[in-house]
Simulated scan of single mutants.
Amino acid sequence: MLLNVSYSDKEMTRKIDLLVGKPFSLKQRWALGGIGSPRLFITETSTGIRNLLILDNNRDQCNIELRPSGIIVRFRSLLETYALVIPFYKLTVYKGDLGIYSIHKDHHFIKVNAETKAVQKFFKKLLDYKVDNAPTTIEDL
């Protein structure tokens, strides 16, 4: 689900919380060693996201927030903030050549550059958390 999250909206927040869970508590964030990614530089995206990013001349970048049941990929275009909300059961991550990670959900995708150790460490944490917490049967959803 691709959303404009620039403005506070209780209904949109409720939808996001239903899809990927409420944000972690401070104690849980501390136990996980942080839930946010470093700054990720976007190299390629799907058409819908690309149409948003080309509206300004800034360097395309995003960050990822880990949630109990999924992730939220946030990026900015002009003065608006957009979020790609991805539950774990729809999340697919590929590691490509030259340190490129590709994050897929249905027809949306974002490819990011992962040259630094911090980015690679975050993706390892993300994938390990997904394996431990993703639903295994349809009843778990």
Rank of each mutant, 00 (worst) to 15 (best):
K15C: 05
K15G: 07
D17Y: 15
G21R: 13
L26P: 01
L26H: 06
K27L: 09
R29G: 07
G34M: 09
G34S: 06
L40E: 02
F41K: 10
F41L: 10
I42E: 08
I42N: 12
I42F: 08
E44H: 14
S46L: 07
G48F: 08
R50Q: 15
L52V: 07
L53R: 11
L55P: 04
N57F: 14
R59S: 13
Q61T: 06
C62W: 12
N63A: 07
E65Q: 10
R67Y: 15
S69Q: 12
S69V: 03
G70D: 02
G70T: 03
I71L: 02
I72Q: 12
I72K: 06
R74T: 14
F75D: 03
R76K: 13
R76H: 10
L78P: 05
T81Q: 05
Y82M: 02
L84D: 01
Y89F: 15
K90Y: 11
K90N: 08
L91R: 05
L91F: 00
Y94I: 00
G96Q: 13
I100P: 01
Y101A: 02
I103Y: 07
H104S: 02
H104P: 01
D106T: 04
H108Y: 13
H108N: 12
F109S: 04
I110D: 01
V112M: 06
A114L: 09
E115V: 05
K121I: 06
F123S: 04
K125M: 14
L126W: 05
L127Q: 15
D128I: 07
V131R: 15
D132C: 05
P135C: 09
T137C: 13
